[in-house]
Amino acid sequence: MELVDYLWGIVLFALFLTCILFVTFGQITVRKLRKNTTTKESLGVEFASGWDILNVAEALALPKVITDRFEGSPISVMFASADVLRKNTNTFDKVLAALFFWLFVFTGVSLLVLSLYMTLFVD
């Protein structure tokens, strides 16, 4: 069991947590937002089923500076509307969103880095 195997173990565990958090966040927060008439239209474009969960997490977890840039761009329709969402969620939702989103980013980036390392330097 070399170092890289332990790293893979950590990343796979993070992947497992990400998927679980994806479902919990979707059920706890996003379902509520989908039903609420004020927020129903502001969840961004749903490329695939469940994509609006990612949109909402992004909107709630990213700092205001970045979400304002998203709002001002020509393709702002594709993103969830952060201002509207922040008004209609409580602190627990925001914490859960931040947890999920940053774990999601960490998992994705580590997967990419590890895979690139394995492809280029091992085998």
Partner: peptide, 10 residues
């Protein structure tokens, strides 16, 4: 799962 998370993040 890895491919899906990676792809959606990309």
């Amino acid at each position: 799962a890895a491919g899906a998370v990676m792809g959606s993040l990309a």
